[in-house]
């Protein structure tokens, strides 16, 4: 409990109470932050001497497939000092779906953000190397969006011809 209170206090103090929301459910603790404040929060989480969330374990997104709230990006960060995994979420509501990249704060976010871009088409602003991670470069769709069929779009990925 102490750790959570510490995080709540510190974050409230530095980011402002209006921009954040705390959720504690199913054994995980998460912070929901406004999109504009994400970069600031990330920088604070890493650089604050009390918290030291130095490792970014994961970056992903969720497609809610509703018009009001289309995407959320989710970050899992870990602090060796507190031995605590924290989840940071931010909602992307309006098109175009853009969010500030955290790759300059956590180096590991580089590939995770590329993966998220590949799968969801969310653009990470100021990302050093935003390319597709898995799918071929010329692929036009974003597979993990809910409007993409599991079996794909026929003809979008051509096969070589069978030899005689």
């Amino acid at each position: 409990m102490e750790v959570k209170e510490l995080i709540i206090n510190k974050v409230k103090e530095n980011i402002g109470e209006a921009n954040i929301e705390f959720v504690d459910a199913i054994g995980d603790f998460s912070i929901i932050v406004k999109k504009e404040k994400l970069f600031e929060l990330a920088k604070f989480l890493k650089e604050s001497p009390e918290l030291e969330f130095v490792m970014c374990k994961d970056v992903t997104a969720i497609d809610w497939a509703t018009r009001k709230k289309r995407f959320s990006t989710v970050y899992h960060v870990y602090s060796f000092k507190l031995n605590f995994t924290l989840r940071v979420k931010t909602n992307l509501v309006v098109e175009p779906y853009k969010v500030e990249s955290v790759a300059s704060i956590w180096e590991s976010a580089n590939w995770y953000e590329r993966e998220t871009f590949d799968m969801y088409g969310i653009e990470f602003v100021n990302h050093p190397d935003l390319r597709r991670m898995y799918m071929p470069e010329g692929f036009e769709y974003y597979p993990l969006r809910k409007d993409f069929p599991v079996m794909g779009i026929p003809g979008s990925l051509p096969l070589p011809q069978k030899p005689e």
Partner: peptide, 15 residues
């Protein structure tokens, strides 16, 4: 023509 487009390596070399 299409094969070349989809599986292009252009960006890798650029990087």
């Amino acid at each position: 023509e299409k094969v070349h487009n989809v599986y292009s390596d252009e960006k890798i070399y650029k990087k």
